[in-house]
Write a protein that binds this DNA or RNA. Structure first.
Lengths: 346, 346
DNA sequence: CTGTTAGCGCCTTCAC
DNA sequence: GTGAAGGCGCTAACAG
């Protein structure tokens, strides 16, 4: 391995001079600089980030921990974070927790061990609290993405989940729907809770009764077994005329379940959800969605994180909270019905 | 920051003893081991990977460089690589080159600087050669994924592109199609070349003439401007009755272009492609595709890489090449027509 | 403008 | 079983 000493020797200077050339620090004569540069090329020198980080006590690395790498919401978010990190001179590393607390814990340990300067986390849920406390304990600045964790104050970028849910429900009622069901992520996840709240409030404002049987609280991540959804569909009586899904994964799973039963959307049941389905669904974009600004989640979150990093030392500054608006894209997955319409989703 | 010296002091032992406890090396009495462990917990010790890697001259990190993080083919591949890396005790870091040679170069430099032990690369194209030469020069083992690069021998995991193209064309001819067009990635990419070859061979075997005007060689990555595709569609006369797309991105773009013209698939044009569209297209899986085993690309590639790493020192072992089969999933994007059917794709 | 010294946190080697 | 010395590659602080 070629080190600065190798090139120092060959260039007839000290290692320190080489270091200065590499980092563009201090004053160096053009002549020595040119010579050092030439030798570096000759020897194919590549600086060793690890050695550098060890002395500098900072790595210039940010870590992005997402919960589902196959979900276009998160990959788009990742692109935003990547661009922002690059812009500020940081490198960005990714991790994928799969909504698993265990994997999340492993990643947090790895992040600490690799001495990342800061972290962007989409926490698996409220039970991520100890993991965040670990980061805080070790003074690693972090920004929460998409989800808050009760008991942990921090910078955070959220979508307006409550408002989004209200918009979706309002849209359905405006089309005459009165039996509106909700399939949601775990109540251990803040965004899921807010979506449920928004759903309940919107029902109330529309003078519709809330019925527990119409709500299924399950999980946001992909599953192979659809039987829980099956049972929920069976349970609702009378069947809903419309379904709100807490995210895109759930929406797709509901559609698959319905299709398996020969039930068509929107002809027999209307369906809306949070999060768009990504570029590969543009073949036939038909789902009405709250299209969260995934790219902005990543971009703005990274920007906040970098700002925190730069004010290092200055403590006690208030936490920032960015709430991105919930914009609805109306497409074709909602049918208009008359209130007395007795169609069934079974 | 807590170091092994801090815990050594507090435990009343030497740093070396702490190091031995951490790594489970050498002989340590149960008593001191227990004591050291206790102090580590008390002080929330986290080992410093960078310092460790610096002395050990290895990082236990593998790097996966893909070309499009928003493409489900690559995210699924990433999941496979992640699982395999974990299984073998390596950590996996990701990078996203966006099919850009410049970004790819930046990543290669970063990979060298961070001293990753090995790399999995989906190269941007034939012009990635110098980047691979850089890796080779610095003796960083790598495995190529999905694409070969002429002039660079290495381990590689490929799909059977030629066979895949033949299958797609054969399927179309079996449904009566005779005017079959091809939209493909850059000819600078090995998989694109093989797909073109397979297409040409299959035409010949089916006694169909090859017509250059029916082939568009463009780019695999997503674009915002569809005008090139528009012009190609205009150029073909008579219009094709079926189109083969070199990957999923191109297929979606073709569909969008066609839909904008009010042309429906498969009623007016049939369409097939390489690579499935991922979980979010399961809403209405209708494209007939060569569904490459994305997960296996990542999993097997990582396994090959780890094997190389373990035989470090032993040189001259032959390169391995895994070719994954091209399995076709027939769905509904191909209509049967009679050979004399004069339908138009314009 | 350039060089010397010391040390970042850890592990290998060699002592005891 | 355990410890002391030295060095991985690099840079901050000081010296000239």
């Amino acid at each position: 391995m070629v080190t600065i000493y190798d090139i120092a020797a060959k260039a007839g200077v000290s290692a320190m001079t080489v270091s200065r050339v590499i980092n563009n620090t201090g004053k160096i004569s053009d002549k020595t600089r040119a010579k050092v540069r030439r030798v570096m090329e000759e020897l194919n020198y590549v600086p060793n980030h690890m050695a550098r980080s060890l002395v500098l006590q900072q790595s210039n690395v940010l870590f992005l921990l997402i919960t589902d790498i196959t979900n276009p919401f998160y990959t788009t978010l990742a692109r935003g974070a990547e661009d922002a990190a690059k812009k500020h001179g940081y490198r960005l590393l990714f991790g994928n927790s799969d909504e698993s607390l265990d994997k999340e814990k492993d990643y947090v340990d790895a992040i600490l061990a690799t001495r990342a300067d800061g972290v962007l986390v989409a926490p698996a849920g409220d039970l991520s609290l100890p993991h965040l406390e670990t980061l805080r304990l070790h003074q690693v600045p972090f920004v929460l993405l998409d989800r808050e964790v009760p008991g942990m104050d921090s910078d955070v970028v959220l979508g307006d989940s409550k408002e989004g849910a209200r918009k979706l429900v309002d849209h359905l009622t405006s089309q005459g729907h009165e039996r509106i069901a909700l399939i949601n992520g775990s109540p251990q996840i803040s965004s899921a809770r807010l979506r449920l709240e928004g759903y309940r409030e919107a029902l109330k404002l529309n003078d519709l009764a809330f019925d527990e049987a119409y709500v299924l609280e399950t999980a946001f991540e992909p599953r192979s077994d659809l039987s829980e959804i099956e049972r929920w569909l069976d349970r609702m009586d009378p069947a809903p005329t419309a379904i709100v899904a807490g995210n895109n994964v759930l929406a797709v799973e509901v559609i698959r379940t319905l299709h398996a039963r020969g039930i068509r959307v929107p002809e027999q049941v209307s369906l809306v959800c949070f999060d768009d389905l990504g570029p590969f669904s543009e073949i036939d974009p038909f789902l009405t969605v709250i299209a969260q600004q995934a790219y902005q989640f990543g971009y703005l979150g990274t920007q906040m994180l970098v700002e925190r990093l730069q004010e290092r030392g200055v403590t006690g500054l208030p936490w920032k909270k960015i709430v991105l608006p919930a914009d609805m894209i109306v497409r074709r997955s909602v049918a208009a019905i008359s209130p007395t319409d007795g169609r069934s989703a079974r």
